[in-house]
């Protein structure tokens, strides 16, 4: 079985850095790269009736936008220099979802940028990279 690396990508500069670093690592040991994009989502948030009605439509639009604007071009770019690459787009809590993606594909390592699109709450409650390092079952490389 080949080695698998999961890289968290959200379009931020730090995640670009994580991608570059992961490609370099993957090349050296011929690993498969799994680019993971997580759309922040909580099933316990509150929606208005109109939002509920349009949710499925919006979800399709969001997935399409993430695929076309973010992940599609990135995968094409990576393929030009490193053939072995896959992508996953999922909804959920970023840390939990990255861990479940890595568990699902049997990843050997997770790469993540140190600061993604951080908000005030991440400053208060801790960053994605920090929580991931604490909770993941596989080694986590935090790229500055």
């Amino acid at each position: 079985m080949s080695v698998k690396f999961v890289v968290g990508y959200d379009g931020s500069q730090a995640s670009e850095g994580a991608i570059r670093f992961a490609i370099a690592q993957a090349k050296s040991c011929n690993a498969v790269l799994v680019v993971a994009h997580v759309l922040e989502w909580s099933p316990y948030s509150f929606l208005t009736p109109t939002e509920i009605e349009e949710r499925h439509k919006r979800r399709n639009e969001e997935l399409k936008r993430a695929e076309q604007a973010l992940i599609g071009p990135l995968i094409a770019k990576i393929k030009s220099e490193h053939a072995e690459v896959e992508s996953v787009i999922r909804y959920g809590n970023i840390v939990d979802t990255l861990m479940s993606i890595s568990a699902d594909c049997g990843a050997d390592q997770i790469f993540i940028g140190r600061t993604g699109h951080s908000s005030l709450s991440t400053r208060v409650f801790g960053s994605v990279a920090g929580s991931l390092a604490q909770h993941a079952d596989v080694p986590v490389t935090i790229v500055p």
Partner: peptide, 17 residues
């Protein structure tokens, strides 16, 4: 709830609304 359906309206959200 199937995790692959995340991002759709959950039972909790429908009930809350």
């Amino acid at each position: 709830s199937d995790p692959n359906d995340a991002g759709e309206v959950s039972h909790f959200q429908a009930l809350a609304t």
